[in-house]
Nucleic acid binder design. Sequence first.
DNA 1: AAGAAAAAAAAA
Length: 996
Amino acid sequence: MGSAQPPTQRACSPGHDTRCSLAWLWIWAKTDRFGLSRKRGNSPWNTLLAHCLDTAAVCGALFDHYLAAPVRARLADAFGAGDVAKARSILMFLAATHDMPGKAIPDFQLGFLQSRDPELLAHARHWLAQAQSHGLPLDSTHRTARQHAHVTARYLPGLLGCTCCTDDEDETGPEHHGLHAIAALLGGHHGHVPNSSCIGTAECDLTPAWKSLQRELLNELARLLDVDLTELPALVRPERPCVLPLFAGLVVHSDWIASDESRFTYRTPETAGTNTDLWWRSSREEAAAAIRDLRLHRWQPTEMTWAEQMPDTPQPRPAQKAVIDARITGQSLVIIEDTTGGGKTEIAQYLTHRLALTCGYHGAYIALPLRAASDQIARRYRDYLTAILGSREAANLAVVHGSAHISEINRELKEASSANLDPSLINITNCDDPDTHQPASVVLHTWYEERSRGLLSCFGVGTIDQLVLAPQKSRHWFLRLYGLVNKTVVIDEAHAYELYQQQLLGAAIAWLADAGSSVVILSATLPKHQRHALLAAWCSGLQTQPSTPNPTGPITIVDSQGRCRTLTSARSKTSRKHRTRIRLMADPGPEALAHHLLTQHTTGITTVIRNTFIRAEALHDALLDQAEKQGWKPEEILLLHGRFFEKDRAHHQATLEAKLGPHPDPAARATTANPDRPERLLLIGTQVLEASLDYCTDHLYTDLCPFDLLLQRRGRQWRHTLNRPRHKHLAPLTHVLWTPNEDGLPCLPRPGTPGVYDPYILAATWHALHQHMPAHAPLTLTLTSPTDTQPILNTLYGDPPPDGQTPIHHLLRTLYPHWQRRLRDERKAAEGRELWPYDQNGNPTTYEELASGPSHGAGDDPDHPAHLAARSRLGTPSIDVIGLYQHPDRITWDPAGHEPADLRRYHPYADQDQEAHRLQRRHFLLNTVHVPHYWIGDLPNPTTWTKPEPAPALTDRPTLLLTPDGSPLDGRLAHLTYTPQTGLSRRRRPQPPVTS
DNA sequence: AAGAAAAAAAAA
């Protein structure tokens, strides 16, 4: 049978049709590389049919239990002309073919004989003899290895009946676009959707015997999965763009679960016989158990009032009440602008429930700007879910960010998981049975810990970066979109993201809208252009126009037709009015400033926030130089910045919060000051002191910085009311340090240089402060928030520079074009990476545009140059370096030599190694320091710096091997030093040895 | 002339 012939159903049914051999049943797909299958007493290799059936079974179970209702509806349209059951079967069948025909070629099959493990090799020889005797045409000449996924992409369309790929040129017909699309997406199951030239290179020279084997295997799959191959081509219509990443994601999700040999039994004709109907049954049973164990079942919320959901705050505040009364039903974009303390987090929690109830989402993802904030909100969301899930549901909640595996809340959730009922005792059918009880709990299965898996958990809290990366091509990127579109996605602190991220968030929102999910956006007041951009992105995904293109807030609700509602009377009255006193102070330089601080602030906590690492370090040095003379002890002067090993920084931050934070006992906070607060302290640092750390300073000095950040920094002053008993009636005084030039204008970084802050924004901030300076006391001004501050922000970021003829006006007009260029560059950086579901003319994105490759962003690929590799944030590139200490007889994690480093290599999937692997990963992360690229200049590849030997775990990891006193062993790095107290420095070169 | 922050690699 040649591939030119139309596919036929039920051509071959094992055990019933004696004309067919069962040679295809000997085609293998997986070998037991880690011994997990054999340990369970099963086969050392798995047949392709079994793996295909396992994948199909998982796909079906995910379709039934995991996918959100709108997602299923879109898949039903794309794979079943609206018929859900039909689409389900076809999706299962297509998921099964991800390795078919890719692995059903002689090249791949002979790869079994390349096994390095002698035991596996013996099994391979046995397999070959058996397979040959059952008619599998294999001669044992070695062939070139091919990417099996690309072989699937190359040959599947023809096997499924696309007429453009027949062998006989006379019968060539038109290309079936849908079949080629799904084949390419299946070809992407290792993470990158291949492009056409990549698929072309997977050309194999197949004998008619192999073609017919492939056909027989495919027919057997179709028979078992009850798919009519003759009607399949007409039903496969993946036209809506969201269907493409959804399909790719569903396949990979299914494959990853089905490839877990601790859940799915390897089956061969020798171990499981040839009754494939029994194989299919056991696939379904094991898939059901896997879905249950991984808790991949949708949230099934019941109607609940606000008071039932929020027992601690049963009385909704104004903004909360407005949202409740809006009775939101169906897919929505909800933008809530309110000040901190207005209860936005609770509204968002309430909306995840409300939207899951009315739309059928499987859960929710909450995105925040920082990892630390994610951990905090995850804790609150855990408590919320625990309260409302009811007694028969349990759910996974994953913290999703780069260091989630050392997150404390993740650890607690994982512990709750292992303490829970043995999941193997529970059948999947219990999901829908209200009488079955299971202890209520919010947990996390360790399965979700591996990278790229966090967003697959029904509930997640994590960084905004996960969302920003979702519409950018990189390995397994579509899995992010797939995980997100089944949820309500909450974007917190929406005003806090730079233009680059805002733009990519727009793309993500458009995909979410196209797939039927809902988005909740929380912010303090949004600049209006940002609100409009969010609305435009939403409507672009819906391919509609907003009914009100320029809504005003503070609460905006947009439905799936683009109809906008604005709730106006809801802004919370609770926002306290803050007054801020600001004094502009010419920076006298580090020595004089140090003298000033040591003599003027001999009591209380004094904090200096500098814009650059160099400035912070210089001031710290000057302070230490003069400390003794002024009667200060060195330990009363602290330095904090971002260039510490994670564990040292965590230690300093914890100390800071313990000493300068509120009372350790939450119950005592309102009445008692922190007893550990020292009499005095000088704290010098960079932007790490600006946000997220909960400490309170009495006096504050800051470098001139953008106005919004100035307010942010000022928030650390008199933060806890109990720390300012003597100043109740006064606003705190913040000193803003600036350097005047000869014209009396601020010295600014030259425009176009990669400075921290744009000179235009700095000059405009300086100008705004001067404008508010009272004429009678021209150094100190008082600002009331938000009445004074909001207009300043709007002007700063929204308006062109003012007319006027004074020097500052001229300066602003000179700098403004550079600022605009900077914004344009950021937008371009986003445009070079982002994928949208529809272009500006409404044309849907096609599968060809999703193509990427393993070299995507690696530099040698002209289609995807390095500067367009996926990034969640722009900024100075840095590399993560692992710090280790060399002692005479051992390598340790710490300078004192107490914690020996285990640098053996562990395999993350091999049973016995998992715990050691996790511990090692944890150590690596804790001993990582981020080194700016320009600090190491044109030094060779950091992975080649002097390393301990032997250290297989450090292969390919940039390593900084230090002496116990913090000097690098590699002479090329002699300009760097590290101490746990001051961090990594590149300024203090070690003195050259005195030569006599 | 350059901060903080986040991210990154299994399905043979």
